Lab assay of single mutants.
Amino acid sequence: AMEMGLACVVCRQMMVASGNQLVECQECHNLYHRDCHKPQVTDKEANDPRLVWYCARCT
């Protein structure tokens, strides 16, 4: 999947907007926009540098 680069696995886009940054699952290393992931990634989750985030598939 490395050839995908830094794109969201849901929408396949790399564009990021304020409040909709890409977050990386620490287990599978897929990237998700906060708005694309279900459930939506919260501000607290996205902005906490100590948080280890896992996508819905890996939790």
Results as ranks from 00 to 15, higher is better:
E27F: 06
L51S: 14
E45I: 04
C55F: 00
V41N: 02
V52Q: 07
L6G: 10
E45Q: 11
K44W: 03
Q26N: 12
D43F: 07
C11L: 00
E3S: 10
H37V: 08
A46H: 05
E24F: 02
A56T: 09
N20Y: 05
V41R: 03
R50M: 11
R50T: 14
P49S: 12
R50H: 09
V10H: 05
H37G: 06
A7Y: 06
M14G: 15
R12Y: 04
D35G: 12
Y32D: 02
V41C: 03
M4K: 10
R12C: 09
C28G: 02
N47S: 13
D48M: 08
N30R: 11
P39R: 03
L31T: 14
N47M: 07
C25Y: 00
G19Y: 05
H33Q: 01
E3V: 07
H33A: 02
H29C: 05
R50Q: 09
R12P: 02
P39F: 03
L22W: 07
C36S: 01
K44R: 10
V41P: 04
Y54D: 05
V10D: 04
R50W: 04
M4G: 10
V9A: 10
D35S: 10
C55Y: 00
R12N: 12
D43P: 07
M15I: 13
Q13A: 08
Q21R: 12
L31W: 15
A46S: 08
M15H: 15
M2C: 07
Q21G: 11
C55M: 00
V10P: 01
C58E: 00
Y32H: 03
C25V: 01
Q21H: 12
L6D: 15
C58V: 00
M15K: 15
C25E: 01
M4F: 07
C55Q: 00
A1Y: 05
C55D: 02
L22K: 12
A7D: 11
V16F: 11
V10T: 02
V10C: 05
Y32P: 02
E3T: 06
W53M: 03
C11M: 00
D35H: 15
T42A: 11
Y32S: 03
V9H: 10
A1W: 05
A56I: 07
V41D: 03
R12Q: 14
V52F: 06
W53H: 03
M2A: 06
C58D: 01
E45P: 04
T42H: 08
C28R: 01
Q40C: 15
T59E: 15
D43V: 09
Q40P: 11
T42K: 11
C25L: 00
D48G: 08
M4I: 13
G5D: 14
P49C: 03
N20E: 11
V9W: 02
C28V: 00
W53C: 02
K38A: 12
C55V: 00
V9R: 05
